[in-house]
Each structure stands twice: as C-alpha cells, then as structure tokens.
Amino acid sequence: TEIRININGVTIHVRDASEELKKLIEHLLRLGADEKEIREVLHRWEK
C-alpha cells in the first residue's frame, strides 16, 4: 500500500506501507506528531 501524509504543507510519501504502519501513523497524527517525529518513526520502522 502506498500512502502520502501531508503535515503542514510537507508531504511524506511512503511506499509499501503495511496496514499496521498506516494505523500507527494515523494514531501518531491524532496525537499531534509533527513531520520530524513521523519521519523518525518511519526511519526506525524500515530497519
């Protein structure tokens, strides 16, 4: 699944996002995570 996240005008594009990762990101956004925090989570997730 491919997702695009727009945070304050900055688009983060994620290829091959699992449903689990998608739910995690949606949850973090609801909690008010910023772009830097989302990128950090994505970076750690890929490892």
Rank of each mutant, 00 (worst) to 15 (best):
I12H: 03
V41R: 05
K22S: 10
V41A: 12
V14K: 01
I12W: 01
E35G: 05
E19N: 09
T1H: 14
S18D: 09
I12R: 01
L24E: 11
K23V: 12
G9L: 05
I25Y: 01
R4N: 10
S18V: 06
G32Y: 03
R44D: 12
N6F: 13
K36E: 09
E46R: 15
G32F: 04
G9F: 03
S18R: 04
L29N: 01
A17E: 04
G9C: 03
K36P: 05
A33I: 07
E19S: 10
I7E: 03
T11N: 09
R39P: 00
I12N: 01
W45C: 09
I5M: 05
I5L: 07
A33C: 07
A33K: 13
L21Y: 02
E19D: 13
L31V: 07
E19W: 15
E46K: 15
R39G: 03
K22W: 15
V41M: 14
T1F: 14
R4K: 11
T11M: 12
E37Q: 10
E26G: 09
R39M: 06
R4E: 10
L24W: 10
E2G: 06
L29E: 02
H27N: 12
I5H: 02
R39T: 05
I3L: 13
L31Y: 08
R30F: 12
D16C: 10
R44C: 11
G32Q: 04
R4A: 12
V14C: 05
E37Y: 12
R15G: 06
D16P: 07
T1I: 14
E37W: 13
T11S: 12
L29H: 02
T11H: 14
E40M: 15
R30A: 06
L21K: 02
E19V: 11
G32L: 02
I3A: 03
L42F: 03
E2H: 10
E2P: 08
T11G: 07
R15P: 13
R4F: 14
R39W: 06
I25Q: 00
W45F: 07
R44T: 08
R15H: 14
V10H: 11
S18E: 05
E35N: 03
N6C: 09
H27K: 13
L24T: 11
A17T: 10
R15V: 11
G9P: 02
G32T: 02
I25P: 00
E40Q: 13
G9I: 03
T11F: 13
E2F: 04
H27W: 15
E35L: 11
K36M: 11
R39Q: 06
D16K: 13
K22A: 11
K47W: 13
A17S: 05
D34Q: 08
T1Y: 14
H27C: 14
A33L: 06
E2A: 09
H27G: 08
N8E: 05
H27Y: 15
I25V: 09
T1V: 13
L31R: 15
L24G: 01
I3K: 02
G32C: 02
I12A: 02
I5G: 01
E46W: 13
V10Q: 08
K23Y: 13
S18F: 03
H43I: 12
W45E: 02
I12Y: 02
T1R: 10
T1A: 10
A33V: 10
T1W: 12
N8L: 05
L29P: 00
V10W: 01
K22G: 06
A33W: 06
R44N: 09
E46Y: 15
K47C: 14
E46D: 13
E26H: 15
K36F: 12
I38S: 00
E37L: 13
R4Q: 12
V14T: 03
E19P: 12
R44I: 08
V10R: 08
G32E: 03
N6S: 11
I25L: 12
I3M: 11
D34T: 13
K36Y: 12
I7S: 04
L28E: 01
E35A: 09
W45R: 03
R44Y: 09
I25S: 00
I25C: 01
H43C: 12
E37F: 14
G32V: 02
T11Q: 10
K47F: 14
R30Q: 06
N8C: 04
G32A: 03
K23G: 12
T11C: 07
G32D: 02
W45Q: 02
H13A: 07
L29W: 10
V10G: 06
E46V: 14
E46A: 15
N8Q: 07
G9Y: 00
K47Q: 15
R15A: 09
A17F: 06
H43E: 09
L29T: 03
I5Q: 01
L42V: 11
I25F: 03
T11A: 10
I3E: 03
E26D: 10
V14P: 02
S18W: 03
L42D: 00
R4W: 13
I12L: 05
E20S: 08
E35K: 02
V14F: 12
D16H: 14
E2I: 08
E40G: 06
A33T: 08
R4S: 13
K22L: 14
K23L: 14
H13K: 08
L24P: 00
